[in-house]
Design a protein around this nucleic acid. Structure first.
Lengths: 209, 209
DNA sequence: TAATCTCGTGAACGGCGGTTCACGAGAAGG
DNA sequence: CCTTCTCGTGAACCGCCGTTCACGAGATTA
């Protein structure tokens, strides 16, 4: 052969890996299975990645890239705060449905003890969204649109908490069942759920005019 | 010997197990380590529990009992809705600090594929809090204290999401770091955090008077 | 006291999964 | 066409972990 793995093959490997990790979690995912699902031998996996941990990090990085791209859209465009919240909520749900593995992998590193590398990656992406939200909340504050007495740090923490649980609720099996349990017939009505969340977040964060 | 393991020993085993599972997660926790930390042999663990899964379920059940006991306090006492929210927030944080392993084990089953038994346990406790919160929100609605247009199902989902993230933020290592990242100097000020969350939840859920 | 029973012990087993490495297929170079 | 080099292959290795079971220490019983 002397053919290095093609570009597409390398991408495929990362995709197969992400799927495996997202489905089974880090520990239960097996390098052998990943290799065979990607149609390569285990050996080559270790030619490209030092070990399971490094491979996981690569999959994670690949996944998180999509997420952080999305993040930049959040502050773009000139809309009212209320509209922006609604846009973000919709984007979060839409993103969830399009990239379930990203959220699942994110959730995965949330538990378990991971390598420095994985830690660092997660912290980096977390740092991006933290800063994005805090900047946004600070801007709201300065425009006197944030609720009285609420400080931007707490507001962005609160806001991201809500988004994170929303994403988990749409992707992680356990949280999905929980969502059904809580929402009942609202489970299938994304539109109405967004409307409800909107009203609550609005009331929580924005000054009454 | 012919001494059955003493009552205290049995309790100690569950505690050691819970700690181990909470710290390392189900997969990385080792039956041998648990046995040796509890000062018994592996064999006896298998005399009392059929396998690792069953032992995990027992630890989980032991932990969740504490949680569901706490739950009943939530609706007790005659206080205003605002006061009740504040009480629950404080209780959540206090509980987190007192029983870190409970939250961590709960978080653990949230990921990974678990046995029917573990699933069932989690669903049961989830069911209790879901019902508790929904009943409470329904009561608020009927008393005309819930915000206009908000339906109890969505409100209780939202509320529990906030509480859950709060608990994770105080116990699960990853979320704890994230909390520090978001809150900055507010990280050490529980009182102020509760005050801030209070204001936001109040605004999100309760009718303005 | 001798026989029997109970129950904790921990070495041993089996299997699995991450990781390695000797191999060989085939491209490149002469 | 032969040599050399590249790089994917997958059997083999190793360590770990859940699980088992033959054993024996001590309690019970007769």
């Amino acid at each position: 052969m002397l053919q290095k793995l093609s570009e597409e093959k390398l991408i495929e490997i990362l995709e197969v890996g992400s799927r495996e990790f997202a489905e089974k979690g880090f520990d239960k995912a097996s390098m052998k299975t990943i290799a065979s699902n990607a149609g390569i031998s285990v050996g080559v996996l270790y030619k490209y990645y030092a070990n399971k941990d490094a491979f996981f990090s690569a999959c994670l990085e690949d996944s998180l890239k999509v997420l952080s791209d999305k993040m930049e859209e959040f502050l773009a465009g000139n809309v009212t705060p209320r509209q922006r919240i609604e846009l973000i909520l919709c984007a979060a749900i839409e993103f969830s449905k399009k990239h379930p593995n990203v959220i699942r992998m994110y959730h995965e590193i949330t538990s378990g003890s991971f390598s420095e590398k994985a830690r660092e990656l997660a912290t980096r992406i977390e740092g991006i969204s933290a800063k994005t939200y805090r900047d946004y909340m600070t801007a709201l504050k300065e425009a006197n649109l944030l609720k009285e007495d609420i400080i931007p740090e707490a507001a962005s923490f609160f806001f991201d908490n809500c988004l994170m649980m929303l994403q988990f609720s749409y992707n992680v099996e356990y949280f999905d069942e929980r969502r059904k349990l809580y929402l009942g017939k609202l489970y299938d009505d994304d539109k109405e759920l967004v409307r409800q969340l909107m009203m609550m977040l609005d009331g929580a964060l924005l000054r009454r005019d």
